[in-house]
Nucleic acid binder design. Structure first.
Lengths: 109, 109
DNA sequence: TGCATACATAAGCATTCGCTTATATAATGA
DNA sequence: TCATTATATAAGCGAATGCTTATGTATGCA
C-alpha cells in the first residue's frame, strides 16, 4: 500500500462520528435511516460520512429497493488493522436494540 | 481507549509527511535537522509535525545538548497497530545512509 | 561575552472539513 | 399517475489544517 492510499484511508477513519459508524457496522449491516437515530444527526450529514468511507473503500453499499444497506469491506487492505482498532473502542451507548425498544427501529430488511 | 483519544492519534498519523516521519523513526531515533534533509522541508514545518505527533503521544523527545532526539513511543496504546501500518508502507527513497553518502548527515549523537 | 546552531513559536494565508439548509433522484405504493 | 420515502448532491459557512516567513529561546563554543 502506498502512502497516499493509506493517508486517505486513515483520514476517513480518524473522525469520531465515522469511527462510531464503523463500530456499528462491525456488528451488523445498517442503513442510513438507522444511523440518523443512533447518532442523532441529520440524514445529509450521515450520507456525507458514508461517501467518505466509501471513497476510501472501507465500506460497501448494497441497494435494496429504496434502502441502501452498508457494511464493512472485509477485502480492504486495512480491514485487519481496522478491526483491531474498533475492538479497542467501547460499545456505543445507543444500540440497535435500544432503537427497537423505543419503537424507532426502521424495517430495512 | 475512548473515541476522542483514538481520533486524535489517528489524525496525527493520517498525513503523508507524518507517516514518513514515523516510518523513519521505526528504524532509528533521529533529530529534526535530519528530517529537513530527508523530507526536503523547512525546519518549522518539521517542528510542527513533531509537535502534533508528540501531542498525540506517539513519539518521545530526548533533549541532548542542543539537539532533540525523537523516537517512537512504544508505550502508546496504538503502538502495535502503528507498527503494522508502518510495515505495510514501502521504504522511503531517501535514507539516512544516502545522507551520509551525500555528506549531509548531521552528527547528532 | 558574543555569535552560531538547533529548535520552538507566532502570524498570515490558502485549502480542507464537517455541518447546515435546500433541492434532486429514485423506488414504492395508493 | 402522484405522493411518500430513502438517499444523494449542492451551496454556503465557520473552524481546523499545513504550509510559509519572521522571530524567539536555549545551548555550545571561540
Amino acid at each position: 500500500m502506498d502512502y497516499k492510499q493509506m493517508e486517505q484511508s486513515l483520514k476517513a477513519v480518524s473522525d469520531e462520528t465515522r469511527m462510531l459508524i464503523l463500530k456499528y457496522l462491525s456488528k451488523e449491516a445498517l442503513c442510513i435511516c438507522e444511523f440518523t437515530e443512533l447518532l442523532d444527526m441529520t440524514q445529509p450529514a450521515i450520507s456525507q460520512h458514508m461517501r467518505k468511507l466509501k471513497q476510501a473503500g472501507l465500506i460497501c453499499e448494497e441497494k435494496r429497493g429504496r434502502w441502501t444497506i452498508w457494511s464493512l469491506n472485509d477485502q480492504h487492505g486495512l480491514f485487519g488493522v481496522l478491526s483491531s482498532l474498533l475492538a479497542m473502542l467501547p460499545e456505543p451507548e445507543r444500540t440497535v436494540e435500544s432503537l427497537i425498544a423505543e419503537g424507532k427501529k426502521v424495517n430495512c430488511n
